[in-house]
Design a protein around this nucleic acid. Sequence first.
DNA 1: AAATTCCGCAACCGCCAGATA
DNA 2: GTATCTGGCGGTTGCGGAATT
Length: 334
Amino acid sequence: MVRPPCCTDANLKKGPWMPEEDEKLVDYISSNGHGNWKQLPKLAGLNRCGKSCRLRWTNYLRPDIKRGTFTDEEERVIINLHSVIGNKWSRIAAHLPGRTDNEIKNFWNTHIRKKLLQMGIDPNTHKPRTDLNHLMNLSQLVGTTQLGGNLFSPWSNILTLQADVSQLAKLQLLQNVIQMLSTTTLPSLDYSTLLGSRGVINGEKNLRTEGLEANIDSLLNATVNPFPSNDFQAVPHPSEGILDHESLNNSLTSTSYEKESLLPKLASTSASPESSTVNQMESNSEPLNHRNSSSDSSVFEAWEKILDDETDGSYWKDILDQLTSSSPSWPLGE
DNA sequence: AAATTCCGCAACCGCCAGATA
DNA sequence: GTATCTGGCGGTTGCGGAATT
């Protein structure tokens, strides 16, 4: 069965809306509601297809639309939700009153995506970019002649530029983490444990008894702000795993709700007052910082220490800023 | 000052899922 | 059970203004 296009009438107007068209649409919906979108244009005296009217209304004319730049908080919410559910813009929009899916989608594509890339984070996976080309390019750009088979030597070259012992230690750690990320698969987040441990949704729902049809959006509310900092932060704690859609669904469809999480706690990556919410929730429950990999523990511990030291949450930004200033043509693009 | 390139955003397109006859 | 309709969603396009050369 092949559906005909929604708007087959070639005489219907397309393109930007005129103020008088907007006025007609608003007037009609204000007094009659939108009802059947297909009938609406005719009833409202508009030479547009219903779909176009619906889009204009929902994305622009609706009275509860919130316009203007996105706040840092909104940005964090978008990033965190995106890390969980991906490009589900309407679902993300449901968590941001007054924002439309289209607006969020545009904001993602024009701002956040670039920002993540500039920070060396893959906007699709929300993981640090570890592709070899990226690192090899970096190597070439800093003029190294001593790769010596060590794929991570670019970091060392940068270190010589910085000549900073503190940075050396941090970058050494970063190297270890990247190496680990590139050679091992991060454990999937046991979402049910996470939720249980956080006293999900103010105790309004007991997921363990209400079953797996649990309201995913409610779950998302509980994880919407894992990086409670005033600074932009998208780099996940290396030990917290990625809240990808698959693992979310796996957790939601798994029957092993009682299994112990393999993951360390969801680290608050700053010491900002806002982080107390997460910390409080964690303190009310079983600690999640159990580790089953002793070989990784030193890296994790060091990482946590660095994060603890980074009270302003700007560690990654600083590092990347320094890297980019050392190498003006740092390959930021894809 | 003019030409060109870049960027952000509104709008369109095609597909899908749910509702209904 | 099936065909059709409608609304909704996500990806993409193209225009207009800003920035750069």
